[in-house]
């Protein structure tokens, strides 16, 4: 852990991190959650604020290829890390295969949870390219959805892994 003084000194000059493949330097309170940095400082609103408590997954991003809850990671902790947000995976014209699977399965109602669902799926498939349905359920267990889109989301996970859909 860097000392507090070191953190503050660094903050004055700005903290550097790589976001969607681009180097970004962010100034200001190093203790504020990465979620606020992404949404407000960098204009990347794909990650959503759902609880701020690590309970729902709506704010997930990839940090060094691991899905993390950006409401629970401070800017200081993200220093020097490589961050991928939903926007960084793909766009409407060229979606990431997982995003394409979500589109094919129409796996969103309000879609507020979709960011977390896509991120958790990308992280899962990186670890386990051909998950069973139970493994998929387990990997998504910490991601909440209020609209009841779960089954479509599971179908999207299986489609993205090239497996039979439930």
């Amino acid at each position: 852990m860097p000392t507090k003084a070191a953190v503050n000194k660094k903050a004055a000059a700005g903290i550097a991190l790589a976001v969607n493949g681009q180097k970004r330097t962010v100034a200001g309170d190093p203790n504020r959650p990465l979620l606020y940095v992404l949404r407000n400082d960098l204009g990347l609103t794909g990650a959503k604020f759902g609880c701020g408590k690590g309970q729902c997954g709506a704010c997930s991003v990839l940090m060094n290829n691991e899905a993390v809850r950006s409401c629970q990671v401070t800017l200081a902790q993200a220093a020097g890390k490589s961050i991928t947000t939903l926007e960084g995976l793909g766009d409407i014209k060229t979606p990431h295969p997982v995003q394409a699977a979500f589109i094919a399965e129409q796996a969103a109602q309000c879609g507020y949870c979709a960011n977390g669902m896509v991120m958790a799926t990308v992280a899962l498939l990186a670890r386990t390219p051909e998950p069973s349905l139970d493994e998929a359920k387990q990997a998504l267990a910490g991601n909440l959805c209020r609209c009841g889109t779960h089954r479509r989301i599971l179908r999207a996970v299986m489609r993205a892994s090239g497996r039979a859909q439930p």
């Binding site: 794909g46 979606p95 969103a108």
Partner: peptide, 21 residues
């Protein structure tokens, strides 16, 4: 027919009120 907003919703391009500035 597919819903027109799903691609934007799953790629982070849909403007929710939360994202509006």
């Amino acid at each position: 027919l597919p819903r027109p907003d799903v691609p934007a919703k799953v790629t982070g391009r849909h403007t929710y009120v939360h994202d509006f500035r």
